[in-house]
Design a protein around this nucleic acid. Structure first.
Lengths: 142, 142
DNA sequence: CCTTTATCTAAAGTCACTGTAGCTTATCAA
DNA sequence: TTGATAAGCTACAGTGACTTTAGATAAAGG
């Protein structure tokens, strides 16, 4: 029987985060000691590791919920899991594209700045006037 | 005198977002009509455009606050604005790096999946076992 | 005057946690 | 057995940057 702190250490997850996962139903409700402390089995550790690894790969908690459901029913086809992963891949690729456009623009901004007074600062000028931009960067958020 | 909806249309910002910016002190408190509706000048439109363009480039509202302060005092040196932009550039570059590592891992995951049953699904297998990963992807968050 | 559109406030919801306050329980040495 | 310390508990607020909702009021055009 593992205490919550052990799971925390073994998976690099904050204790509060584990409790949070239980609260939103991503982790099962843990058994308790007579004093009310949570105790876990190895399978809970595995599940938490799965969650954390998926988070590290950028999956949303909703996607992870789907993946866990699939993982719990090994008879099904793998297509669903595959499509979730592909969707995630597409999202990552889009974000990279967008960030690369931002990077280009920011580079140009700081390259053109020659440390003069704010009055003729290129950085501020570019921010003031979108029409000076070379790239499109329409959507907000990474 | 411009209504809030006009600012909204001209800058592609939701009306609520403009009110939110006022609430957190990023936009000045607008003048009001006798009936209590906000009315704006051209300079408010410029300020909002500056904010939105900065957001599109990924600057945080805190950074934007600094940039606006600088912009309001044109006598200062431009060094501060430059350093904020450089910091932003570094952040963007880091995010790109991290996302590229994720992309590699996700690509490998979906490439190895051959559509068999969940039981031998490569995607789920990789998520289950971190040690199968080729790349390090330790930190969560983009 | 009436209808439609725009605007108002206040508060709650989003995502995925993180932090805090004020307790109680478990563990180990003395 | 005692007492210190570490670990755990609940409940709630806070983060960033908004978005959504509900219910009411104002402005504009015909």
């Amino acid at each position: 029987m593992l205490a919550i702190g052990t799971l925390s250490r073994k998976t690099g997850t904050k204790v509060q985060t584990i409790r949070y996962y239980e609260q939103i139903g991503l982790m099962n409700e843990a058994g308790r000691t007579s004093g009310g402390q949570r105790r876990y089995y190895e399978k809970d550790l595995d599940r938490l590791a799965f969650i954390r690894h998926s988070r590290q790969l950028g999956f949303s908690l909703d996607s992870i919920r789907e993946l866990l459901d699939l993982s719990d029913n090994p008879a099904q086809s793998c297509a669903e899991a595959d499509s979730i992963a592909r969707r995630q891949l597409r999202q990552v690729e889009q974000r990279i594209k967008r960030l690369q456009a931002l990077k280009k623009e920011l580079k140009r901004m700081v390259a053109e700045c020659d440390g003069e007074s704010v009055a003729e600062c290129k950085v501020l000028e570019v921010l003031r006037d979108h029409s000076e931009c070379l790239t499109n960067h329409d959507e907000i958020g990474a």
